[in-house]
Amino acid sequence: MSVWVDKFDVFAGGFWLTFQICVLAATGALILGAVVAVLRISPVPPLRAVGTAYVTIFRNMPLTVVMFFSAFALPALGSNADFLRIPVLDLVFTRLSTDLPYFRFALIALTLYTAAFVCEALRSGVNAVSPGQAEAARSLGLTFTQNLRYVVLPQSWKASIVPLGSVIIAMIKNSALIGFFGVVGDLSATADQLTGAEGYAFIPVAIGISIGYLIMTVPLGALLDRIERRQAVAAR
């Protein structure tokens, strides 16, 4: 068990890196997912088709494959994803601007993949709002955007928040894959380093890593439970 004390800094570093990619990917996926959701419910058929195609592709492909594409196709296209070297942001999230591009590739893959699920969670919330609400808004002369902004979204986010939380929890767990795609030093890669190179026993290391993930996922899950319970009471 001494590994927890001796190598606390390794665990902490892994936790910090995983936490960083999760915060960035969650933010990116929420924004991109919202855009795709708007496309999917838009009254313009070609936009709807684009949204649907996006979701079909990224919801049905294994994340590993998306990661492969990101890590191999982007360099083949001559891109090091340098557009993610966002000034100021890269002062906090230092990995954004390292010369090794794997963190950025992994971030792109995780964002693209998760956005498809975010889109569907948002859309299920929109579908939970009775169609009469949007119809009344249209009959008053509200445009599509005004309808979303003033009538549909203020009512739909309540129904979206719990499924959205589940999507983010799944994303945190999915982030464990990034170690296999060249990102050195995230929480799950910590296992390899400590058991392989440094010869520590596997079980204590695995427990330490699990705790790292649970610190991120359990509070989020508890928060969702609370929101759900409050909504159930309000609905009565």
Partner: peptide, 14 residues
């Protein structure tokens, strides 16, 4: 549509 009011069977108040 803003010049034609509509009243629904199920009210549809926001």
């Amino acid at each position: 549509r803003s010049e034609v009011g509509m009243v629904f069977q199920s009210f549809n108040l926001f």
